[in-house]
Amino acid sequence: MGIRTVFTDHSLFGFDDAASILTNKLLEATLRNVDAVICVSHTGRENTVLRSRLYPPTAYVIPSALVADQFKPAVQLPPTDTVTIVVISRLAYRKGIDLLVATAPKICAMFPQVRFIIGGDGPKMIDLLQMRENYLLQDRIELLGPVRHSDVRSVLVQGTIFINTSLTESFGIAILEAACAGLYVVSTRVGGVPEILPPDMISFANPDEDDVIRAISQAVRTVQAGKHDPQKAHDLIRGFYDWNQISERVERVYDAVFETKPYDFWTRMRRTLDLGRFAGPIFAIILVVDCLFFMVLEWWMPSWDIERVQMHWNQERFVEIASPRKMNDTGE
């Protein structure tokens, strides 16, 4: 039996700058001899196929999953006279924090009942602090700093709207967690984000200041009018992104891979040399070294002597192990 390889890609890259060209060449070499690639969105799949010159039928789309019981909506909803907008993100340029800095003061001016809770850390934290000081919004914008994943739900359930201002995103697990916790989502229309949620659970904006303000304003009016049902949103996410379903789809990919004939050494070598006049020989040498290394490992620790473990997914047991702490009867 030959070596089988399944690669999972969560990235989105461009094609026209030096960093992207180098990264894409490395990706092409990495995926040259893999049997299948799993991407988290159709946009991500298209990007990966183009970047790596991959044979399209070997690329599959399987979204991320989450444990829905870890993101139950609050039993007691926030007061309707206050709209709390939550942001949990890496505070970096790629996450569109400049858009948040530009739009938050204007939203506060337009809607006196709106407040922000911002969790996360990064190089753009200083910009948020300066914005809050310049506009005297200390009582309207709360900056939490780093938030542990075990505390994400406790932050989310304090709000009614979640904002994602990313400039690029292959999927967006934070959006999924927020929607599962019952929040209405506002996001920039980038990458694979439009594939995540039904249209009645999210408002989209182009990644520019005026359109983000429009989308947030629309979301504020939506939640104030009671047109968003947190429990219904939670139930939908539970059905769409259940770990049992996602793991079964991954298993089917592996089953399909094992039904195909593996590449032999000389086929792998030929495919590697086809990478180009300069890259081909370099990666061919790496391939030979890797094969020699695995031969040594096989001699030192034969594969037939390694114990095989059968994995059986059990949602209730998974939740029990994954939950950082037991929730009380109120779901808090």
Rank of each mutant, 00 (worst) to 15 (best):
Q138E: 13
A74R: 10
R94G: 11
R140C: 07
V34C: 08
L136C: 14
A65D: 06
M131E: 04
N47I: 06
L31I: 02
P78E: 05
S150R: 14
I62N: 00
L27Y: 09
Y93E: 13
P57G: 09
V75W: 12
R51C: 09
Y60D: 00
E133D: 15
D139M: 14
L137D: 06
L27R: 12
T48Q: 02
N134W: 07
I85G: 07
N134S: 12
K72L: 14
Q70M: 14
Q70L: 15
V37H: 07
C108N: 10
I38R: 00
I88L: 15
T84R: 10
K95G: 01
N134L: 11
V67R: 13
L22T: 14
R94L: 12
A74D: 04
D69Q: 15
C108H: 11
S89Y: 02
A36G: 06
P105S: 11
D127I: 08
R140M: 09
T103L: 05
V40P: 00
L27Q: 09
D127S: 15
V147M: 06
K72V: 07
G122N: 06
A65E: 04
T43C: 08
D121W: 04
I85T: 02
T23Q: 13
I118G: 06
E142F: 11
I62G: 00
R45F: 01
